[in-house]
Simulated assay, not measured.
Amino acid sequence: MSNATREINRITTAIIRISMKLIVYALIILLLYEAVIKGYAFGHQIFYAEAMEEAPGHDMTVTIEPDTSVSEAAQMLADDGLINSEFAFIFQSMFYDYDAIYPGVYDLNTSMTSKEILQALNVKPETEETEAAQKAGARLKTTQDQAAPASAEADGQAAPAARA
């Protein structure tokens, strides 16, 4: 090989190395740009949740079975069109401490944000047993309230008798 051929090979190799480095740097910058854009969009979904539809939206009845996890509920809500992103819903539940989703039947609307849906699912629904227990408690309290004045009158009469 002549010196001219070696010199051309050396220059060509240097150009290829520089080109490869530039391509790798361009790919890294592109990936970082995409990651920042996707990360911002995900954060926006978590902290500034938007409803699927404008008010008044559509009412939907959702049944949450016992032992339903947050991720299962998120998948069900996404399938029903109530939330936009399952992952954002799961992260919201962790971030806002809505780890408990109570079983029951819920009336939800497509104009509700995912945070409002989490708040609704985190409230223990009124069941027939709970209502019956509350009514029984109210009857018991009413009976106690009626008995309390009678015992106060008895205490009032006993006190003067003790003084005499």
Rank of each mutant, 00 (worst) to 15 (best):
M1T: 00
N3A: 11
E7F: 00
I8K: 14
T13M: 09
I15H: 06
I16Q: 09
I16H: 06
R17Q: 15
I18F: 11
I18C: 10
S19G: 04
S19Y: 07
L22Y: 05
V24W: 07
V24N: 11
A26I: 11
I28M: 15
L32M: 08
Y33A: 05
Y33T: 08
Y33L: 06
A35Q: 06
A35H: 07
V36W: 07
I37S: 12
Y40Q: 00
F42D: 04
F42E: 05
F42T: 04
Q45I: 02
A51Y: 14
A51V: 02
E54P: 06
E54R: 03
A55V: 04
P56R: 03
P56M: 07
G57C: 08
G57Q: 06
G57D: 05
H58F: 03
H58I: 15
D59Q: 12
D59K: 12
M60E: 15
I64S: 06
E72D: 15
M76E: 02
D79E: 14
D80V: 07
E86T: 09
F87V: 10
I90P: 13
Q92S: 13
S93T: 04
S93I: 03
F95K: 08
D97I: 00
A100M: 14
I101S: 12
Y102E: 06
D107K: 15
D107R: 07
L108Q: 07
N109Q: 06
K115C: 04
E116Q: 15
L118P: 01
L121P: 05
N122V: 04
P125N: 04
P125E: 09
P125L: 10
E126K: 09
T130Q: 01
E131T: 02
K135S: 10
K135V: 01
A136P: 00
G137Y: 01
G137T: 09
G137N: 15
A138F: 10
L140I: 00
T142P: 01
T143L: 13
Q146M: 10
A147C: 06
A148L: 10
P149F: 15
P149Y: 09
E153S: 03
A154H: 05
D155P: 00
A158E: 12
A158K: 07
A159D: 11
A161I: 13
A161Q: 13
R163T: 09
A164L: 14
